[in-house]
Nucleic acid binder design. Structure first.
Length: 782
RNA sequence: GCCUGAGUGGCGGAAUUGGUAGACGCACAGGACUUAAAAUCCUGCGAGAUUCAACCCUCGUGCCGGUUCAAGUCCGGCCUUAGGCACCA
């Protein structure tokens, strides 16, 4: 019924919500908050003459389905199909104007064929690579997690402990796009908090990478954001995993102690390692020392787990006078602390302030400000060949392998002769084979590894024996490009036709949850940028505008969950109050962008409002015009509702409709023209009842949702008379009814003429008279 | 520690650029209708003092201070709280 065409004379509008994961629990009351909001926008755009694309689909790969399948010995395909059927029926009952002709499903081979195709493109461009590395391993899911999926050292999904494990993994080089992912935030309209969170996650820092010579005759590279403090570097720290330890092992007299420390560090979980309040530990290397390139002094080298191997060079110069961690470490190990920036007392506490401060004890830098010193020393280090300016990011490459069944197979073949070879494009989709058991294997491999017939294949390159990759892709794969598939969902030849991609891109308005800011939102921006670079996606950024809805909490103000017993089932609400009431309530519940507690008691108000609207039919007169008493109220309402929908203020838009309805009841009658206009306005929020009233009261041809969005007349938004406040010295003393177009002189005169004000001013001298048009008069008197 | 937000009645929440604080709704109280209840309709509903009653008055948007004729809104300093990041050099 709401079918978007890829060819139209109308301007296009692409509204998008995050497609749901069809879980076994069915729709959550949180889903409709987002869907109804953009449904309102989509409906308004259609009425405003746009060709609107508002699609829906299913992000259906994932662990809960797989776990359910394991437990109940059913194929996840079947579980998925059942869940989708339930979700679909629930969404249909809400009357969301999705384009169901474009429904997609990430687990459909015709869909994941293109997910695999994109992976091979990434592989072809060197952005997908396999690497032996320490990864985050969820002990409960028996699966590798991306950094983005680890929350407080626990699994984002199940909360279980995450440990480090060395495994060979497929990685995606998202770091290649780090700078552009930051820069291009300038091109899009996202909430500041979303942009800030993404920048924070990517974590750009500027500094210097420099070489420190050692007494072993080689060098250690360090990274620092404070090259200005290099004269104060009194020791050096390398991470326990640093490769130089192996190189130096024969020279180190305390190698046993170091290896023991290394061993202990490797056993710690992520959670333990990143615990903040932890006391610093470490071991000094006996036998190798470094040389501060500026002071030429020999300084000790320590190994400590407060330096991470995965960031920078895995080694730092330690400046205890001006870094909190170095200071703590120096105090514990009684290392010298040298002040190089004046302003604090470095014996008492580190002086980390880097705005104001003058360099001291720093030879060529003495007397400079920190900023000047940074510039000068960077140039100096470059000139001497000691170091160079370098930008670093906290963002790591994306661990893309999962050792699970229910995901897209990674279309790669391992050949002893040719290495990693792409499955030829014409063999896509590489479908998931049937397996007997979906359980991961004991050694942490995917259940696919047991499918020897499937695993053993021939190399596409040399024809020799080869093995298929048995890892699958993470759940994020399918959702990283789905907005492109919607543009042309049935295309067999390409992920979408160039014309469709050109026509619809970018998504004009994308609404979703804050929880996806550093996961899905970042991943899909990355994929879109890559696809843009290879000439497929038509816009640099996938989403022109992003908004975020707040969570709907339980009645007790806590997050809804089964264990808390505060879950509200949308089916129950729809059954008892109807879909329109449900939609209206979720939009009226509060500020759209903030979390709001559910209140079943408050729903009644929305239901009552709709009943009062329904009963207007009995008050309807045959007149077409707006009645003089209500004309300005209607014009104001059209204006307000139009504006509020654009700024996500659905709650006040509905309040305006309620106020307008109260005004109509005060008049005791409604003209046909008024009811028509009211129905048109309300139809965005409550489509079912409005279509019904539209037809029964014979308000017009066709359906309400096909009408034009009404215009308002600015000049008619104003009443003939208005009430202004009269203040004396800023305190309201009375209110006056005056003509709306009254000028300052007359307004002030009218104010003074009132008995109350005259009495108030008696015997006082007027100092100042202020008139704020349409608002108030303020008389200042002594 | 750093980065974002947010603190307003019994409750959810309103309040362009500083300009009548509490829109709209819920709950509650009183009344009408009814044999009765539900539903519906009408009225009231921040706190305090005063009054037979009403008007009027005083206070009031987390706390302290400031700017202004005028501050929920702007500035400075705190407190509390939610979300994100975090031994990131």
């Amino acid at each position: 019924m709401f079918h978007a065409s890829n060819q139209s004379d109308k301007p296009k509008y692409y509204a998008l919500i995050e497609f749901p994961y069809p879980s076994g629990q069915g729709l959550h009351v949180g889903h409709p908050r987002s869907y109804t909001a953009l449904d309102i926008v989509a409906r308004k755009r259609r009425m405003q003459g746009y060709n609107v694309l508002y699609p829906i689909g299913w992000d259906a790969f994932g662990l809960p389905t797989e776990n359910f399948a394991i437990k109940n010995h059913v194929h996840p395909k079947l579980v998925t199909a059942q869940n989708i059927a339930r979700f679909k029926q629930q969404l249909l009952s809400l009357g969301i104007s999705f384009d169901w002709f474009r429904e997609i499903n990430t687990t459909d081979p015709q869909y994941y064929k293109w997910t695999q195709w994109i992976f091979l493109k990434l592989f072809e461009h060197g952005l997908a690579y396999k690497k032996e590395m320490a990864v985050n391993w969820c002990t409960s899911c028996k699966c590798v997690l991306a950094n983005e999926e680890v929350v407080n050292g626990g699994c984002e999904r199940c909360g279980s402990e995450v440990v480090r494990k060395t495994k060979s993994q497929w990685m995606l080089k998202i770091t290649e796009y780090a700078q552009r992912l930051i820069d291009d935030l300038e091109l899009v309209d996202y909430p500041d908090r979303v942009k800030a969170q993404q920048r924070n996650w990517i974590g750009r820092s500027t500094g210097v990478q420099a070489k420190f010579a050692t007494t072993a005759g080689d060098t250690v590279e360090i990274y620092t954001t404070r090259p200005d403090t290099m004269y104060g570097a009194t020791y050096m720290v390398i991470s326990p995993e640093h490769p130089l330890l192996k190189v130096w092992q024969d020279k180190l007299s305390n190698i046993e102690e170091i290896l023991a420390y290394q061993e202990a560090a490797s056993k710690k979980s992520d959670f333990e390692r990143t615990e903040v309040a932890k006391e610093k530990t470490g071991v000094e290397l006996k036998g190798v020392r470094a040389i501060n390139p500026l002071t030429q002094k020999e300084i000790p080298i320590f190994v400590s787990d407060y330096v991470l191997v995965s960031y920078g060079t895995g080694a730092i110069m330690a400046v205890p006078g001006h870094d909190t961690r170095d200071w703590e470490f120096a105090k514990k190990f009684h290392l010298p602390i040298v002040e190089v920036v004046k302003g604090g007392n470095v014996e008492q506490e580190p002086f980390t302030e880097n705005q104001n401060g003058t360099m001291v004890n720093s030879d060529i830098l003495n007397g400079l400000t920190v900023a000047e010193a940074k510039k000068k020393i960077t140039a100096y280090l470059e000139e001497k060949g000691i170091g160079y300016a370098k930008v670093n990011f906290k963002l790591r490459d994306w661990v893309f392998s999962r050792q699970r069944y229910w995901g897209e197979p990674i279309p790669i073949v391992h050949c002893d002769q040719c290495g990693h070879v792409a499955v030829p494009l014409e063999q896509l989709p590489l479908e998931l084979p049937e397996v007997d058991s979906y359980e991961p294997t004991d050694n942490g491999e995917s259940p696919l590894a047991k499918m020897t017939e499937w695993v053993n294949t021939v190399c596409p390159k040399c024809g020799g024996p080869a093995r298929r990759e048995t890892d699958t892709m993470p759940q994020w794969a399918g959702s990283s490009w789905y907005f492109l598939r919607y543009m042309d969902p049935h295309n067999q030849e390409a992920l979408a036709s160039p014309q469709a991609l050109q026509y619809w891109a970018p998504v004009d308005w994308y609404n979703g949850g804050m929880e996806h800011t550093t996961l899905h939102l970042l991943y899909s921006r990355f994929w879109n940028k890559f696809l843009y670079d290879v000439g497929i996606a038509a816009s640099k950024e996938p989403y022109a505008k992003r908004t975020s809805h707040g969570m709907i909490l339980g009645e007790n103000g806590e997050k809804m969950s089964k264990s808390r017993g505060n879950v509200v089932n949308p089916d129950d609400i729809i059954r008892e109050y109807g879909a329109d009431t449900m939609r209206l309530y979720e939009m009226f519940i509060g500020d759209f962008e903030k979390a709001a507690p559910w209140s079943t008691a408050s729903i009644k108000g929305c239901r009552r409002f709709l009943e009062r609207f329904w009963n207007l039919q009995e008050l309807m007169t045959a007149e077409e015009e707006l009645s003089p008493q209500l004309e300005s109220a209607f014009h104001r309402a059209v204006k307000k509702i139009g504006e509020d929908v654009e700024t996500l203020k659905f709650n006040t838009a509905i309040a305006a409709l309620m106020a307008l309805l109260n005004d109509i009841y005060d008049c005791g009658a409604v003209t046909k023209g008024e009811l028509r206009l009211f129905t048109v306005l309300l139809n965005l929020f409550a489509p079912h009842i409005c279509e019904e009233v539209w037809e029964r009261a014979q308000l017009g041809d066709g359906m309400v949702c096909r009408q034009q969005w009404p215009a308002y007349d600015e000049s008619k938004c104003i009443d003939k008379t208005i009430e202004i406040a009269v203040q004396v010295c800023g305190k309201v003393r009375c209110r006056l009814e005056v003509a709306a177009d009254i000028d300052a002189a007359h307004a002030i005169a009218a104010a003074k003429a009132s008995e109350k004000i005259a009495a108030e001013l008696a015997g006082k001298q007027i100092v100042k008279e202020i008139y704020v048009p349409g608002k108030l008069v303020n008389i200042v008197a002594k």
